[in-house]
């Protein structure tokens, strides 16, 4: 088994560490860096609890080796709040009761982040398909959709203010 020294920018901070080739990114984040906000819910890339952003794109960190992320940029739930300001998605999940046990929430938020970046005004149907790779067992999804809509509105307002 090969070992590799990898450098990854995670939430704006650079980490250099030696990893075994087979170490999954999810375990690198959780066990080695103690970034435990990203969760593990299955072994088959089915549940999306481990969703993070790799160079801005949402991926499942349980189906990616840490070594593949060498020299890439990663964002996890821990990096979403900026300068003490919650991201509109975080606010949305709180305001619209988009979470219960909280286990799927980080993955949902990370997925929501890319979804809104690509499509700032998604319809309900687009959100439903957009989060179809994230399972939630508590909420029945309706309030998650509202949470993402809340964030979309908020982000659009911010955009307008800036313009």
């Amino acid at each position: 088994m090969s070992k590799h020294s990898i450098t990854i920018e995670i939430n704006g901070e650079s980490f250099t560490q030696e990893v075994d080739s087979r170490k999954l990114l999810i375990h690198f984040l959780r066990d080695d860096l103690a970034l435990t906000g990203t969760h593990i819910g299955c072994d088959t890339s089915s549940c999306g609890a481990c969703t993070i952003l790799l160079n801005g794109k949402s991926i499942k960190a349980c189906t990616f080796f840490a070594v593949q992320a060498n020299n890439q940029k990663i964002e996890t739930i821990e990096g979403v709040e900026q300068g003490g300001q919650l991201h509109p998605l975080q606010e949305g999940f709180h305001q619209e009761h988009g979470l219960q046990c909280g286990f799927c929430t980080p993955g949902m938020i990370m997925r929501g982040k890319e979804l809104l970046e690509k499509n700032p005004n998604p319809t309900e149907e687009e959100i439903r398909w957009g989060i179809s790779g994230n399972l939630c067992r508590c909420t029945g999804y309706s309030n998650i959709i509202k949470s993402i809509q809340y964030a979309a509105n908020k982000l659009n307002e911010k955009q307008e203010e800036a313009a």
Partner: peptide, 11 residues
């Protein structure tokens, strides 16, 4: 919610 939306839940 405060901890869960930040990924700071402790499971």
């Amino acid at each position: 919610d405060a901890r869960f939306i930040r990924g700071l839940g402790k499971y």
